[in-house]
Computed example of a mutant assay.
Amino acid sequence: MVSFLPLSRAVAENLHDGDAVAFEGFTHLIPTAAAHEAIRQGFSELTLIRMTPDIIYDQMIGMGMARKIIFSYLGNPGVGLLRRARDAIENGFPRRIEIEEHSHAGMANAYAAGAAGLPCAVFRGYRGAGLAAVNPNIRSVTCPFTGEVLAAVPAIRPDVTFIHAQKADRKGNVLVEGIIGIQKEAILAAKRAVVTVEEVVDNFDDFHPNLTVLPSWTIAAIAVVPGGSHPSYTHGYYIRDNAAYLEWDEIAADRDRFQDWMRRNVLEGRADDFAVRVKHLRTAA
C-alpha cells in the first residue's frame, strides 16, 4: 500500500547505496527535489539511469555519487554541456564513472521491456549508427518469422524510480498532465517507486479520464513537494526557469564554485525551499 511520507523519509526508505536508480522526467516534471534529498543523504555507488540527464545528474555526478550512468542524451537543455559530468568522464574528477550510451529509442524500448517483465527489448534501430561499437549491450537478433535483423538491448529494471507529477488523490493514485515522457514505464519497470507531487486532491472526478494516471499499487511512497520540479516546469503550475539553466553553466564550470553552490543551495537546503523558488514562476492552472 502506498504511503504518504515526508520526502526525506521517502528517499531514505527506498534508495540505498549501490542501487540502480532512475530520476525520470522529460522537459518538465523533472524530480529535482527528490534528487536534492538524495544528495543530502549522501548515497554512493549509484547507477544513474535517465533518457535525458540534465543538471540534477550533473550535480549528483559532481558530488561523487555515481558509479555509472545509463543514458541517451547528456546535456544542459538549451545551453550545452554538463560540465561536472564531462569532468568526471574525461578527468576522473571527483571520480571516474562508467558510461552506457543508447539512442532515445533504445532507452524507451528498454524501459517498456522492463515494465512488461521482459529480459530485453527488440526493435528497429541503430542502423548506420556507431553506438554499438562502444556499447556491448547493443546487440542484434534475427526475427524467427521474417529473418529480419533487429536491434536488442537489455531491459531496464531500476531498483527505484523517482518522478514528479501534478497531483495524487488521497488513495495514492497519481495524475500526470502535459508532455509525457517515459515516466509511466520507468515506474512500472522499477522494484520501488517514489513520486513527488504538487498537491493532494480528494479524487480525480473533475479531470479528463484520458490523463495519465498511475494507480496506487505501482507506487511505494508519495511526498508532497510544491515546486519540486524547479528549475524545470510543471504544466499548469509554474513555468521553466530558463535563467537557472543558464546560470548553471557558469556554476558548474568551476569546481570550487560548484561545491560552494551545492553547499548553500542543496546540502543546507530543505524540500520546502522549492515552493519559494517557483513563487515568481507561478502560472494559472
Rank of each mutant, 00 (worst) to 15 (best):
F4S: 14
A10P: 06
A12N: 14
N14V: 11
G18L: 12
D19H: 15
A20Q: 15
V21C: 13
H36V: 01
E37D: 13
G42H: 06
E45W: 10
L48E: 07
P53Y: 10
P53C: 09
M65W: 03
A66M: 11
R67W: 12
S72W: 10
L74H: 04
P77G: 13
G78T: 03
G80W: 13
R83L: 12
R83P: 02
N91T: 07
P94G: 10
R95G: 13
R96L: 12
R96E: 13
E101P: 10
G106I: 03
A113P: 07
G117R: 06
L118R: 11
V122T: 11
F123T: 14
F123V: 15
F123G: 11
G125F: 05
L131F: 11
A132D: 07
A133F: 07
V134F: 12
R139I: 05
V141L: 09
T142F: 13
P154E: 09
R157A: 05
R157H: 12
D159H: 14
D159V: 03
T161R: 08
V174M: 11
G178Q: 00
Q183Y: 02
K184T: 01
A186R: 02
I187R: 00
A189E: 12
A190R: 01
T196E: 15
V201D: 07
V201W: 08
D202G: 03
F204I: 06
D205Y: 05
T212G: 05
L214N: 03
W217V: 10
V225R: 00
V225M: 02
S229L: 01
S229M: 00
Y237F: 15
D241N: 14
D249H: 12
E250P: 01
D260A: 15
W261C: 02
R263L: 15
N265D: 08
V266H: 00
L267P: 02
V278Q: 03
H280C: 09
A285W: 07
